[in-house]
Design a protein around this nucleic acid. Structure first.
Length: 444
RNA sequence: CGGGGUAUAGCGCAGCCCGGUAGCGCAUCUGCUUUGGGAGCAGAGGGUCGCAGGUUCGAAUCCUGCUGCCCCGACCA
């Protein structure tokens, strides 16, 4: 992408409403625009990151055996009356009437709807287990939205729903998602720690929040330091093997970890002080097993091997990709701006032409830009007629992992510069060497 | 939902106390000079001062009501 043709509205000054660093940087880097309290437009650069995150989430969900679909944002109130949540949910649910005065709502979550779909088609235990997910916008009318997309009213959520014949197989489904979540966050360069959680209004027995540690996190968390060194399950783990994924859950729940809600000070205090980690965290995922809480009132039943109807055992599994964008920035930034992990970077490479209009510099940039693009490397080519300082500042702000700097001085000696955004390390290389390095690493 | 702020050009702000028809920096546009860490000079454009009432010869400024947004707490992917 040529920057001169792109839409990247960088702000030099920080809008005053932005309090936390991720919100400030998202606004400054032209990723996001607030349209109302807690409601945001995703500008092109922000959308690219969101899509990268979604792609990773999707790959890991699919790998774990979940099946993607797409449910609507608008739901019928009648559906929610079946589970008795229409009244329980309160003012957080945005209620709407259509032209026929029918009561509708903007979905805050999808247990009811997915259960309705399930019961419409599935009759036999032989069709289980089943896990359906979608990535869809949710709306929760938070009392006080804040911190940009960290706590917005409209937010993107990947929500998966599992259906099983009994508790034992439901626990296997839970373990699949648990394992997939560890992998998902690790692929984004995040260390997520599963912590025992309250089940809240969704209800249920078994629940974990996945928390990443960040000094700017919203909640106080406590855990054993062993978590920081645990290995993430490999890509080739057999998700169909209940023992294998169950072992992952056992290992990752074998040490103390709790949010302040669930904190047991005496159990934590019993750890040796070297092992105690008390920090701030951001919740990026939440999984629940809630048995027959919805299947019973909504009559989502299957015939078991014994020929009897039984309500299915369900679980739900949420990840907030829009919140993850902010969480990733909280965990990856410096004074100059964002530092994207390669896996979620909106572009791999920022190519800065330091003297637009200089024939040799232009030619070198255009040539490298074409070659890299053809090799599948995502390049943002800064071909604006700006001074070098402005270009460096822009590239640092938007945080692309690798900067390639082409100017007449270096070019006179056949050299261009490659800079690593995270470490600041610079290499002076020929254009061919730069191309070979970037093409072989896929830009990362 | 309780408490506290705030609203003036795209962004950040001054002006308000003491009423006289709006200004600064950045950004934008034009020209010239510049070009390896957010350039300099000269010029230009851009605002029904959040909305609605009221007081007054006259309101950004004073009064009343409303709304948006932000912050602190209690609640949440």
């Amino acid at each position: 992408m040529r920057l001169s043709n792109y839409f990247l509205p960088i702000l030099r000054e920080t809008p005053k409403e932005a309090e936390i660093v991720s919100h400030r940087l998202m606004l400054r880097a032209g990723m996001l625009r607030q349209e109302s309290a807690g409601i945001y437009a995703w500008l092109p650069l922000g959308l690219r990151v969101l899509n990268k995150i979604n792609a990773i989430v999707r790959e890991e969900q699919n790998r774990a055996g979940a099946i993607e679909m797409l449910m609507p944002t608008i739901q019928s109130a009648d559906l929610w009356r079946e589970s008795n949540r229409y009244d329980d949910y309160g003012k957080e649910m945005l209620r709407i009437k259509d032209r026929h005065e029918r009561e509708m709502l903007f979905g805050p979550t999808n247990e009811e709807m997915v259960t309705e779909i399930f019961r419409a088609y599935v009759r036999s235990y032989k069709d289980l287990p089943l896990n359906l997910y979608h990535i869809q916008w949710k709306f929760r009318d938070e009392v006080r939205p804040r911190f940009g997309v960290m706590r917005s009213r409209e937010f993107l959520m990947k929500d998966a729903y599992s259906f099983d014949l009994d508790q034992a197989s439901a626990e296997h489904s839970y373990a699949r998602m648990f394992t997939a979540y560890l992998r998902t966050f690790a692929r984004m360069g995040l260390k997520a720690i599963p912590m025992r959680a309250d089940t809240g209004p969704i209800g249920g027995k078994l629940s974990h929040e996945f928390i990443i540690l960040a000094s700017t996190g919203e909640s106080e968390v406590f855990c054993h330091k062993d978590f920081l060194d645990f290995d993430v399950p490999p890509a080739d783990i057999d998700f169909n093997d209940a023992k294998a994924v169950g072992g992952v859950v056992d290992k990752w729940t074998s040490r103390y970890a709790a949010t302040s809600d669930m904190h047991d000070a005496s159990a934590f205090g019993a750890l040796s002080s070297d092992d105690q980690v008390s920090a701030r965290g951001i919740e990026v995922g939440h999984i629940f097993y809630f048995g027959t809480k919805y299947s019973e009132p909504m009559r989502a039943v299957v015939n078991g091997p014994d020929g009897k109807e039984t309500p299915v055992h369900m679980g739900s599994y949420g990840i907030g990709p829009s919140r993850l964008v902010a969480a990733l920035i909280e965990a990856n930034h410096d004074d100059a701006g964002i530092i994207w992990p390669a896996a979620v970077a909106p572009f791999h490479v920022g190519l800065a032409n330091l003297k637009v209009g200089d024939a040799a510099t232009d030619a070198a940039c255009v040539d490298l830009y074409a070659k890299l693009t053809n090799a599948g490397v995502e390049v943002l080519y800064d071909d604006r007629d700006e001074r070098p300082g402005a270009k460096f500042a822009t590239l640092d702000l938007i945080g692309l992992p690798t900067q390639v700097i082409v100017g007449p001085k270096g070019l006179a000696e056949g050299k261009i510069e490659m800079k690593d955004r995270r470490t600041g390390a610079r290499e002076t290389l020929s254009p061919d060497e730069v191309f070979n390095k970037l093409a072989s690493s896929g830009g990362a």
